[in-house]
Each structure stands twice: as C-alpha cells, then as structure tokens.
Amino acid sequence: MKISLEQLGVTLGGQTILNGIELELPANKTVGIIGPNGSGKSTLLQCIYRVLRPTTGAVFIDGVKLERYSMRQSAQKMAVVAQHNYYNFDFTVQDVVLMGRSPHKRALERDNAEDYKIVEKSLAVVDMGGFEHRIFSTLSGGEQQRVILARALAQQTSCLILDEPTNHLDIKYQLQLMDIVCGLGCTVVTAVHDLNIAALYCDQLVAMQDGSIVGMGTPKELLTPEFIRNIYGVQASVMTDESGIVRIFYHPKNQSI
C-alpha cells in the first residue's frame, strides 16, 4: 500500500502544526518519523489515520484521496497502535482483539469461527496466547500494548501505523514490539523518539522540525552528528557497527569528550 501526502497542512487554534508536507511513503518498508517533541510527528500520523482532518492538502492512499474511502474501508487498509492506550474498562483480551475485526463486519454480522481463529493467531504472534480471557485492564503496560498490537493485526491490513507506541514501555518491550512489527513484512509507519531504535529497525527515516520535513533517507544517511545537533540540539557521536547498524552515543552538555 502506498501512502502519499500532498501539501498537507494543519492549523489548530491559529497555530500552524504542519506546514505543506510533501511525502511519499514506500510500500512494504518500515518508515520512521523522527523529530523533537512538538515537531508534528503525531499530527502527521493522525492525518493519515483520519483522527485529524488536514486544514489544507490531502492524504492519498494508492492514489485515491483518503476522504473518498469510508471509515470502514480505510480501517481495512491500515491499522493503528497509538501512544495512549490506557483503557479503564473490563473487556477481556479476546473482546479487545475481536474489535479489530469490526471493519470487516456488516452491521448485523456476528463474529464467526474464522474471526476467533484470527484473534487466536494474532495473539500468538504477539506472544500473548492463553491470555484470551484475562481482563485487559489488569495486564501490565507491555502486555496491554501487545494486545493492542494484536488487535491491529486482527484487522489484517497491509499497513500498520505506530504512533509512538513504545513511549511508556521499558526497553525489553520496546524491542519486542518493534521486533514483531518489523517482522511482519507489511508497510509500517512509525513515530520514534529513540534514535537508536529508529536506526535499528527503520529502512527509511523522515525527520521533522517545526511542522516541516527537514530530512529524509536511510538511518546511515540521515543520522549524522551535525544533523542530530541541528534537530535536537544535543551533542552526539555516531558510529556504524560491524553489522552496518548506526549507533548513536549522546554526550552530556557540561562535559567535553
């Protein structure tokens, strides 16, 4: 699935959050969106997954304007794991993952054996098999996020959008989640805070600053010490390890190394 953004702009309360974004996201690749807080990463993703309506410009999916699709159709094309997924209700894990089947259901259609099979498979992929009948809100943060990922998988879409899903997770779960997602082989668009994680998992990076795109390329091309200093205002050195993966080392401000 190909996503492209044309002249995408968002103005909220007189403030420009996104400014004429032009972007084409390649299919079946993992694309990371990086940039400091408030640079517009999340806003950009929210325009793609339709929670925000762009003020100007449009999002195109496979060449068709996003508004031309019904909500159901777009939910059949892309699934979302968002940064805030704390729910205070007592749905079971199975109930939550089954909701991932809703875009495939007509109004009166019931969940059938196949849906349950898909739910079981999705939970197995995220290593949460056997948790079907646990109450969602009693799970740990990492487990909850994996269940939400399973729900997204149950949507059976060719594109997955991750809106900083690993924000509140400890490193084990951050890596685990990214491992699962990048092993799926579908189009993945993810906002990432941690540049090392971005370098580890993303094929392509898009850097944002003040609502505009300020750089694009592979982690190796993009993540240079100068670039990191310009975007984030921090000192860092960058090296490439023997397997070709970019590693970033940050330096404290009051200490010259």
Binding site: Y49, A82, Y87, D95, M99
Partner: peptide
C-alpha cells in the same frame, strides 16, 4: 441489540473507533 459492536467501540473513545472503522 443490533448496535452492540458500536456500543462497545464507544467505550474505547472516538479516535480508536475511527481507526477501527466507525465514526
């Protein structure tokens, strides 16, 4: 009784419901 799916989605909130195909 025919609206159970949508009622369930309501508890997840508007944004999540949109990503699951219901406005």
């Amino acid at each position: 009784l025919t609206q159970c799916r949508t009622l369930n989605l309501m508890l997840l909130g508007d944004s999540t419901a949109i990503t699951l195909g219901t406005d």
